Simulated scan of single mutants.
Amino acid sequence: MRKALIVGIDHYESLTNLAGCVNDAFAVKAAIERNSDGTLNFASPQVLTGVSSAQCVTKRDLKDAVRQLFADDSEIALFYFAGHGYIEDTGGFLCAGDSSTGDDGLALSEVMQLANTSRARNKVIILDSCHSGAAGNSTMTAGLAELSDGVTILTASTANQNSYETPGGAGVFTSLLVDALNGAAANLVGDITPGSVYAHIDQSLGPWAQRPVFKTNVKTFVSLRKAEPPISLGDLQALTRHFPAPDYNLQLDPSFEPERSSEQEADPSIPAPDPVNTTTFAVLQNYVKVNLVRPVDAPHMWHAAMQGKSCELTVLGQHYWALVDKGLI
């Protein structure tokens, strides 16, 4: 069972209203509800949105929903929040719609208490709010995070930074988060993990922009979503067939390359394309596209084949070769 609580608050009774948090919440819901093949991922995520006085997300609403999220032993309990954040010397807060001073919001320490004591196997907390990097920080020791087993935190900014919006009103962080969940952070088997999401966001933000924060205490990363893999599973599993060893050099010749000039076709010294070899070569070209294979002493695979060169596994290719060899893929 995968549970998700998604909160977006634009309307505040006393604080400045926001513009894009509700849209961000629905964008996250759309991204995680199903995998790319249409299968259910997080079934029926709970969505709380604050859009008006008649639909105000109060602190009581927010705390009750977070408590319910972390109440059982689900495989994943994911909490996403977009709205105002506040910090003072006693810690950080998520501002509910009825917050008036900031420190009357839901304390991050309370969120962490519920997550740290939850029986859920994986607790993922994603916060797009100002000062959200304070989540998980020890109240006693500066620079120390207190996370129980299975807890992961991903935040839009550090404890001392604001979280910014795009000119269209969407959160900069959430826009990158949704991009990552939609496949930009997928590995070669299509899994999108909290670590790969953070890497995508971190690499997309410049050194002078808000800095995302990633904290985790997990033994293995859980997949947040399955995307369309950039290479077929069959081709990936064939790595060990085409390369008997990770340092193997696969010798090529012109019979691997089906495309050639009219002069080359007329040259009797150049072997004609061989159907078995050209089929293999098409797979090798797929490997090159995802940085698993590279030509040796040639600028492109076409040159490697026509010049009788070879190709080899990259470092990434050797990593996936080992995973296939061990039966992990």
Rank of each mutant, 00 (worst) to 15 (best):
A30Y: 01
A27T: 04
G171N: 03
L188Y: 10
D253M: 04
N41E: 03
G143P: 09
A272F: 05
H319V: 12
G183V: 03
L233K: 13
A185V: 11
A120N: 10
T158S: 14
A245S: 13
V283D: 07
P299Q: 02
V218M: 06
V28L: 02
S269D: 13
E110Q: 15
L78C: 06
Y198A: 07
P271T: 02
N137G: 09
V66K: 03
V324P: 02
F173V: 04
D73Y: 05
L40H: 05
Q210P: 09
V324R: 00
S255E: 02
D267Y: 01
V66M: 09
E13S: 14
S232V: 06
D103F: 14
H200Y: 14
I329Q: 11
P207I: 11
L236C: 07
N41F: 08
C95H: 07
C130M: 08
H84P: 07
P268K: 02
T90D: 13
L106Y: 01
F214E: 01
D37E: 05
N116Q: 04
S44P: 00
I6Q: 06
R225F: 03
K215Y: 11
T39W: 06
L239C: 13
I201F: 02
K3M: 01
M140C: 04
L181A: 07
M301L: 15
T101I: 13
A96K: 03
T139Q: 12
Q46I: 07
H131T: 12
R60I: 09
N217R: 15
Q55F: 01
Y320I: 10
I192E: 04
K3A: 10
Q203P: 00
A322E: 12
L239F: 13
D103M: 00
V151D: 05
E228W: 00
D89K: 02
C311M: 13
I231M: 12
A180L: 04
S196L: 08
L252I: 06
V290D: 02
S204Y: 02
A180R: 06
A185E: 00
A180Q: 08
D297S: 14
A159D: 10
N23P: 00
I87Q: 14
G50K: 06
L239N: 13
A145Y: 14
D179E: 12
A82T: 11
S157P: 07
E165S: 15
R2P: 01
P244Q: 03
K309M: 12
D297T: 06
K219I: 07
A304N: 11
T279N: 10
M306G: 12
L188V: 06
A107N: 04
L236Y: 02
T155E: 00
K3P: 06
D64R: 08
D149K: 13
L284Y: 09
K29D: 09
E228S: 14
T49G: 05
A31F: 08
T139C: 08
E312N: 09
Y86R: 05
F256S: 09
D179H: 08
